[in-house]
Each structure stands twice: as C-alpha cells, then as structure tokens.
Design a binder for these strands. Sequence first.
DNA 1: CTGAAAGCGCTAACAC
DNA 2: GTGTTAGCGCTTTCAG
Lengths: 334, 334
Amino acid sequence: MSSSLDDVAQLAGVSPATVSRALRGLPSVAVTTRDRVRAAAAELGYVSSPSASSLASGRTATVGVVVPYLDRWYFSTVIAGAEKVLREAGMATLLYNIGDTAGRTRFFAELPLRKRVDAVLVLSLPLTEPETQALTGLDLPVVSVGQVAEGIPMVGIDDYAATRSAIRLLAQLGHRDIAFIGQLDPVPLGFPTPRARLRAYQDAMAEFELGEPMEADGHFTVSGGETAMTTLLTGAKRPTAVFAASDEMAFGALRGLRKTGLRVPEDVSVVGFDGHELTGLVDLTTVAQPVADQGATAARLLLDWLGDGTPPPSKTLLKTRLVLNGSTGPVPAA
Amino acid sequence: MSSSLDDVAQLAGVSPATVSRALRGLPSVAVTTRDRVRAAAAELGYVSSPSASSLASGRTATVGVVVPYLDRWYFSTVIAGAEKVLREAGMATLLYNIGDTAGRTRFFAELPLRKRVDAVLVLSLPLTEPETQALTGLDLPVVSVGQVAEGIPMVGIDDYAATRSAIRLLAQLGHRDIAFIGQLDPVPLGFPTPRARLRAYQDAMAEFELGEPMEADGHFTVSGGETAMTTLLTGAKRPTAVFAASDEMAFGALRGLRKTGLRVPEDVSVVGFDGHELTGLVDLTTVAQPVADQGATAARLLLDWLGDGTPPPSKTLLKTRLVLNGSTGPVPAA
DNA sequence: CTGAAAGCGCTAACAC
DNA sequence: GTGTTAGCGCTTTCAG
C-alpha cells in the first residue's frame, strides 16, 4: 500500500538518491528528471516518512511550543499566530502545555522535546535559572514571547512604557487617586511582566505628582480583579480611577464596581491591559498589545535562525496602543 | 555528547536489544537487569531518539489534533482538555490549524499528518464526504468532537435536548415570543451543531405552543449577535426573550439591547449556549457544556482504541446543564 | 530471559 | 547531474 522512495525511483528510472533530491527541490537535479520523479511520486501517492528523514538528516521539521496555559485568551492567540507562520513554512507544531508544578518539574527534567524538534518557542513562561539552562542546553534555537531570560532572545512589548501611557491618560483626565490592580507579591517564579507594570505605575504616580499609590492583588483572574476592586473601595481613600494590569482583572473590577452600585466612568474610570477580544463588549478602555503578532514574529525569528544560523537580536519589541472606550472619563466633580 | 542505546548497553553489560526492552518496561526482562539498565541510562543522560524508534516500530507516540480555530475560547479549551490527557499518557500533541479555505484544501490534499501520528483528533470541523474519506483513509484511529461524520466516532453533547431545555426555561418564565439567534443559512459545510439547535428551537416553539418563531442570523460572532438582536427588535413583533445558540452571540445581543436602551431581564430575557468563562461576568444565563471534558474524553477514547484496537462507540454524549444567571426573568407585565 | 542479525526509509558523502 | 555506499538509532524476529 504505502510506497517507498525506492518504488518511486524504480518507476522514474532513477536512483533513490535522485528521488530524494528531486522531491526536496534541491538545485542539483535536472529539471526533466525532477518532473519525471514528481510524476512518478504522484502516481504512486508517495509520502515520505518523516521519521526516516529525521533519522537520516537530523532535522525534524518540527517546532516545539511550550506554554503555561492553553485555554487563556492571550496564550491561545499567541499560539495561533505562531502556528500559522510555522505551518506556512512547512513546519509542524508540537504543543507542550507545562501544566501544574508537577508537570513543570517533569517537563524540565525529561525535556520531552529533546530530539523531537528543531527549535523551541517558549510562551510567557517565567523561567528559573536552571530551567533556562535546561532549555539553552538543548542546543537548539529558542525564542521566547513576553519573557526575558539570560541567553534566550525574546519578543514582547514595552510593558513599562505601555503602563505609563495608561496612567498618563488617567492623569490627563484629571485623576489623581489612581489605584493599581495586578500581581503584588514577589511571585516565586518572578513573572517579569507583572513587575514591570507595577513599577511603571509606581514611577508614574510619582512622576506625574499624583496621589499615594493604592495597590491590590488581582492574581490576573477575573474573580481576583473583583475582589481587589472591592478591597480598594473599602480603603481609606477611594480611587477615582483604576488601572488593571490585565483585561481579565479589569473585567472583574467592572463587575465589582457594578455590584457596589458605582457607575463607570462617572464614578470610577477603569483601564485594562491586553486588548482582549471582549473589551469592546464591556466597553473597556485598554492598552492593546499585538498578541497574535508576537507569536508570529517569534516564529519568524525562529525560522530565520534555523535558516541562516544567526540568532535574532536579544529583544524585539512590538508596539502597543491605547484603545479608548467608554470606561474612562474625567474625574468626578465632587 | 548525546549517547546511544549501544553506549547504555555497553555500560550495563547487556545487549542493545535488552536495553531497548528494559527501558520500555517490557515484562520479559529480569528486574535486576532492568534496574541496571536504568541506572546506566540515567548515568549517561540517555534519551531515546523518537525518529529512530518510530522508524523501527512504526509508532510515533504522537496524536494529531486538527482544528478550525485556535484562538476561540471553545476550541482552545477543548484542546487543553485533550492535550492534558495525551501528555499524561506520554503522547505528544501535534497541532494542526486548518486555517482558511486554501489551507483546508491543502490540508486534505497533502494530509501532512500522514506517517507523523498514531491517531487523529478532529475538533468540531464540519467535514465533507471526501474529507471524511481522506481521514478515514489514513487508516488510523480518528475521533471527533462535536461533529458527526460517517465512520468517525464522536464525542459531543445533545444539542437538541440542551436547546430544548433552554426554551422550556423561558416558556416556564411565561415567555411566548422567544426569538432565536444562530446560524440560519444552510452552511455549505453543514455544521450540524447549529442546525440541531435551530431545529430544537423550532420544534420546542411548536411543542410548547409558543408564538411564531423569530429567527436571525448571528454567524456565531459577538458582532453578528448584536446585529441579529437589532434586527429582531425592529421586527413586527418584539420578542420578550432571546435564545442565542452561542454565548458569543448572546454577548452581542446583550450589547445590542443595552444600546437600544432595553433592560435585561426586565424588558428582554437572554439565554446563551456554551458556558463561556465570561458568562459570569456579564451575568448571562446559559446552557453550559463540558468543554475541556469533551477534549479529554475524546483523547481517552483515542488512547483506548490505540491500546486495544477496538474502536469506541460511534457516539459519546456528555451532559449539559442550565446555568441560571441574571439575564433571565419572568415575562414583562405589559 | 537475553543476544545476534536484519532491517525500518531516508539522506549524505563520495565518486563518476 | 546522478549513482553508490553507508549509515542514522532504534525495534524486532528468531535463536538459544
């Protein structure tokens, strides 16, 4: 049933080596032979065996994509962007979801990607030093999205500047008491993104000479955002505006405000971060980042690296933009 | 650097064949030998080459997951469910996003999964007859989620019954003029899910002796849902309740209602379908389906099939449940 | 329970 | 340009 290279060779009247060369489009094959080989291959419905060619060539034509979550908007969107580029380049995408701590430990201990892929894409996975070394130790091209780690080129956005622009917007609207919902505790694994956003908030509050920073932890979830909002509302000073370090947390904040009977933006303005697909739905002003694009860019860098052997620059930053919706307005008169 | 089976064999003082058997945990190896081999492998940091073993054994330890979208909540969640099960079973997940029509044609023409995977999971991909044949012609275990196709076992939900329960809920609340937002035009590729929901709606309207069916096409998108809602509101008879065949369309409907100044549920009740993670946020009553679970179940069926060679039942249906939130209420008095 | 031998189907030098 | 010759690193009969 399933035909081999040799069958094709026989049908085309050439050697197997020539078939291999012809089918891969190597230049060192006469055009006529190439066409003859192709015809023969088509006639037999020949498909090459990836395992055999990997074994012989050492290349797998596969890229491993390592993610901490699969079912969150941000991650699935980045993956979609990367997968498209890889697919169009004839590369297969091997998906690896890190999962919980146990899965994570196992992943870095066993490195199930070893000998299975030609390159690795790491998505927003905060890496410890040993983990970084495990990856770079694979001796394969590795590019990360949204994550800086020693020796791993990254694609991302300027979290600091983007956050700053959001705070500036609120300041320009007259707000002084601007609260922050994000991740506060020094996360064990040190996700750098949350930290940069928090730091930018703190710096901007000082720089624009606004009120005292008010911070609450929203754990990057909708419900966490709601809780954080509630906490902020019961504080000594009630904020007139809130910046949430993710749209999901901002969604939660909106819900918290609604439950408390406060109106947005009349009583409190809210700004989110990410450009989530549903910000339009709830009319949330947000700092939109190009999500799919980061995945696509990272994939392209990986392909180029694979092509010419030269690693990409250590940092590739894409632009964010402020998307004004109805959740922001001037500071209340009172 | 990278050691081979033979190195391990030498270190352990046995033959390569025995190493292979020991490392795979075959029963025909003495416990003492097995341990000795394992120790040797660990010492050398040995990792077997998947390509070599695939080539020799014909098995790839990989499952192909074919999807029409990657960045939609429903799909990424199903994938997450499946990937987890596969990963825990030591199977790799090869992701293939069909993409646009061109990509689709190419996919079924070339079947890039051929010889790369041991089994295939097809997610909610409406398949034409030839496409179905292309897949079953691979002669591999294939299971689909949410999609019936001749000869392909499926995992899904009872769309008809679930929709009926939503209409019944609205009927019990006193609503008679219940509109439907879904997919109306006979989709070329005949997604069966939308059809079942539409049919259930129509049947239920008759069965419960409610008003004349009012239908609008929402194309399964947020904005489509909004447009559909607007259309329905300008019709001869204004509905007091709306059933949307997906939460995304329901989100759009909510926005449409809000823009028109109508209150939910005082003026109009809304019910969605899916159990989207953000239904809680917008307080949408919905028919929740077990999404990740469908992926996980399908993956398990595939693994079992791979294990014992017996195909699963042609249909495995999981339970849905009505999640009551604030978007539904009794029919307005007027 | 273990070893020897024979490939799996392709690619890569190396000749011509 | 093309053929020849060796493997790539495993698994799998078949013996014993």
